[in-house]
Write a protein that binds this DNA or RNA. Structure first.
Lengths: 329, 329
DNA sequence: CTTATTTCTGCAAACGTTCCCAAAGAATGC
DNA sequence: GCATTCTTTGGGAACGTTTGCAGAAATAAG
């Protein structure tokens, strides 16, 4: 592939001069500029950014690690963050960890080697090894979805405890008194633990609740369905159900309908995330809106700021949520 | 940041030797290896991949351009392609064109500068300028979603004409005879033109159809709703509707219900894409399954092959589809 | 037509690696 | 103990840029 050198030879000037016209710097005669430009077109020269990056010690690369692409949260988040990163003239280097803890760590290291300027990490857990890997990173890492502020890792999170609390209030207000919860993997502090904790707090406070059921599943409709079927046989007096995600909630409603009860009437159901699915299902799903695109944007902004200033002026940013009331509660 | 040089000085050997232990090459004494390793840990050395890439003339980077992240097609496609790219030890450099034709071209150029090894392009159109940009790329480009084989651009597409044809058959078989179509932007050959064309062919063949309505909207539920409302007033005898995407179809069903007709009974409705939305809505949506994750994977494989062999052994790959019969048709 | 000033251009070092080549050290054979 | 072979190490060029510095060319001034 043609390099600066060839263009120089072809146009009879030095590499320096060619470099100058490419970066159109001040101080090159119009006639030579033209001459060089012609040579560039002629031999189809394409600047080598790798060499530039090395020389300039700057890659304009932001590493992004996600557990999966095709979920409401990550897809929207990616849409948000990519817009601000690209706005800043930088590029997204994307890695899909496929929820594999090992891979997350591997990618952090690889990204460091690639000399990314910072890393955005969509986390579904936060264990010892991951914290260590983040600490060892030579470039800033910002966490999305889990709270790493205890370890001094800047984090953008949603108000999961608040959502849980609010869910309890809404269910009680709607008349439920035997309330269940369907969470996910308990490693996922934010989605499972925090939302459950908020719910518990809320119910203790209102003192109306006798029992609390805590089941765990995956992030799918199917798993919500299975879990709820189980729950219904184990605990027939169930009349309120808080699901850690909208997909789970939709599966739950299906199970409820099949058990000849009416979701939203016999059993109040609440999800979280405001997935489009909840708008179109019947009955439509009451839920909480999480502004995933916004949290994606925010996290990118925080990271860019961190890269610029070397100093975090925000170590934790908790995004608010919004009640979405539809038919199921 | 500590480089090879510092490690060398610290451990009292040459750069060459340090390089050798890092790449654990054969022929370095165990004792020095150890010594060097200690120095590496000590000064927290992280190999500089940029320098390596330059020296080795290889970046292991694959550029991926998408029109948006948060759609069923791209999210699933991304999931598929990232898995095979990462399997191959390469990385995904992601760009979101936000459906801006200019940006697509811009990114192709930027990716060439970045010395990616190949480009995967999710296209929503294919005009002169884009073809030119692709032709000028010094690295292979494979197109996903639009047929570029006429221009000798390797393409992975879905059988859009086939889907349209099949849709006509299914609608007629279900008893419809006044069939409408709701497409999208007509620049989108695959989604708009081809699907419509297939439908037309199918209906001509069966000779049962009097009229064909052709409306165009966006990719959203809302637009499907609006378009259908219009269609219903313009053409009251409508009894079959083929929508270019599932989201449009869902909006359509809403409009139909509001007009006091029953989707799936009074008016048969068919979408395409097998979006999860279609499973949960009422009535559930009959559609066609497009294996987006698979087309993502395939396209990555084709590209990797192209990079390896410099010679395309496949210039066009059309993915089959699957009928999904639910309540709406 | 000098000299001083300004504008333009080229040389060469540097960025952090890899890897060829030669040289030094260690081991072996006689 | 010396030649021979094998293992281990170091020197330095190269990858394709950018950029400080100095020198050349052009222009302005006297």
């Amino acid at each position: 592939m043609a390099g600066l050198h060839e263009v120089a030879k072809l146009s009879g000037v030095s590499k320096s001069t060619v470099s100058r016209v490419i970066n159109n710097e001040y101080g090159v005669k119009a006639s030579t500029k033209e001459k060089v430009q012609k040579a560039i077109d002629e031999c189809g020269y394409v600047a080598n950014q790798v060499a530039r990056d090395l020389k300039l010690q700057k890659t304009n690369l932001i590493g992004v690690i996600v557990p999966r692409m095709s979920s409401n949260a990550t897809a929207k988040g990616l849409d948000g963050l990519s817009s601000v990163i690209e706005q800043a003239g930088k590029h997204v280097l994307l890695a899909n960890s496929q929820q594999d803890n090992e891979k997350e760590i591997e990618y952090i290291k690889r990204f460091n080697q690639k000399r990314v300027e910072g890393i955005l990490l969509y986390a579904t857990h936060l264990d010892k090894a991951l914290v260590k890997a983040i600490k060892q990173s030579t470039v800033p890492v910002v966490l999305i979805g889990q709270d790493g502020s205890l370890f001094n890792i800047p984090s953008i999170i949603h108000d999961d405890v608040g959502v849980g609390f609010s869910a309890g209030m809404r269910l009680v207000e709607a008349g439920a008194s035997n309330i269940g919860f369907i969470g996910v993997n308990s490693q996922d502090i934010a989605v499972d633990q925090c939302r459950f904790q908020g719910l518990t707090q809320s119910l203790q406070h209102s003192k109306q609740i006798s029992a609390l059921f805590h089941s765990r599943g995956e992030f799918t409709i199917e798993s919500g369905y299975q879990q709820t079927k189980q729950l219904l046989t184990d605990w027939p007096q169930l009349d309120g159900l808080f699901c850690a995600t909208d997909r789970i909630a939709i599966g739950a409603m299906k199970a409820i309908s099949e058990a000849n009860k009416i979701p939203g009437k016999d059993i109040k159901v609440l999800g979280v995330g405001n997935d489009e699915l909840g708008q179109v299902c019947t009955p439509s799903l009451s839920t909480f809106n999480y502004a995933f695109d916004l949290s994606g944007k925010k996290s990118a902004q925080v990271l860019l700021d961190l890269i610029e200033n070397k100093q975090a002026d925000v170590s934790k940013l908790v995004m608010s949520f919004e009640n979405i009331s539809r038919q199921s509660c």
